[in-house]
């Protein structure tokens, strides 16, 4: 089939920006993921306004009130109340803040570490690359959950500790991806010409390399945000993450676990929330990857 050349159709049509817009909104996953995520972010930001109750106020006489669609449920507590009689919907809305905060901050920290390591490894190569590769291997060999649990146990569970630990642990994928992206463009003509023009190394890294690895970086950011959010939930679920009375979704599942047999909705609701958030972020990440690099779709 090598001799069969199929000519691409003429590309004299809509402008580049219009094509990009078309690709963004034409991409179902991107639209769905972006849409859901926007909604969750809005919920988190506006939690103070839209939450029907204070998420910390206990109403011990009204524990385990059923959600509105179940027998005995009422509109006062749409998603029911937990084991301390706190409004489940309000806790869920405030919980979104925790998940998003964890995701964003952890991805920021790990993104900084991983990008610096990956870009230097890819750009300088040689010894720098060898050291970075070694560090990546060491990091990958360490069991994340176990190390995170141990460190959180050592320093005590708090939002700050959890986010720092996750940030310091999840840089591996950033480093791997940034390294290979940088390697791909390192020897391209425009980098060489920038060098020939006498641009300083930091300047080349910032103005020539970074903009060109940004697409991949954004994709990894979404992946690692999701990763950090799930890990926080798992740590909190095991009791070694965010501590009560904070309304972390993982913690809510953990607290509902004891009533698993009688009130399964206690774990279903925060679980579905967690799933929806992760799903939306993943869809967004996949979508961004497809839209920015359609040739890598498979």
């Amino acid at each position: 089939m090598t001799e069969q050349t199929i000519n691409a159709p003429e590309t004299g049509g809509p402008s580049w920006a219009a094509q990009l817009r078309q690709r963004i909104f034409g991409h179902l996953g991107l639209t769905i993921g972006g849409g859901i995520l926007t909604l969750i972010v809005l919920c988190a930001l506006l939690a103070g306004v839209i939450a029907p109750h204070d998420p910390y106020v206990q109403e011990l006489t009204n524990r385990f009130a059923s959600p509105v669609w179940m027998d005995g449920g009422g509109w006062d507590h749409i998603l029911g109340t937990d084991h301390l009689g706190r409004d489940y919907l309000s806790r869920l809305l405030y919980g979104a803040r925790i998940s998003l905060l964890i995701g964003i901050v952890a991805a920021l920290i790990s993104g900084m570490i991983g990008t610096i390591m990956g870009v230097s490894a890819g750009y300088f190569g040689g010894k720098v690359d060898a050291v970075v590769m070694f560090l990546i291997t060491v990091r990958l060999s360490m069991p994340v959950v176990l190390v995170a649990l141990a460190v959180v146990a050592l320093f005590g569970g708090s939002l700050f500790v959890v986010v720092t630990v996750l940030g310091l642990l999840l840089w591996d994928r950033f480093a791997v991806v940034m390294r290979s992206c940088t390697m791909q463009i390192r020897d391209l003509d425009y980098i060489t010409s920038a060098k020939a023009l006498g641009c300083s190394t930091p300047r080349i890294l910032l103005t020539e390399i970074m903009p060109n690895v940004l697409n991949s970086l954004i994709v990894v950011v979404t992946l690692e945000m999701a990763h950090a959010i799930v890990l926080e939930a798992a740590l909190s679920f095991l009791g070694l993450g965010v501590q009560p009375p904070l309304p972390s979704w993982g913690l809510m599942i953990s607290e509902g676990k004891d009533m698993l047999l009688f009130e399964p909705w206690l774990i279903t609701i925060p679980g579905v929330a967690l799933f929806t958030l992760i799903f939306a972020i993943n869809m967004l990440g996949d979508g961004i990857r497809d839209v920015t690099a359609p040739e890598n779709r498979n």
């Binding site: 798992a234 599942i253 698993l260 774990i267 929806t276 993943n282 996949d286």
Partner: peptide, 17 residues
């Protein structure tokens, strides 16, 4: 895609139930 978004500890609980 769905599978990747389900937290495993939650999935475990659901399976137990």
């Amino acid at each position: 895609v769905i599978g990747q978004a389900i937290p495993s500890f939650w999935f475990g609980l659901i399976l137990i139930v």
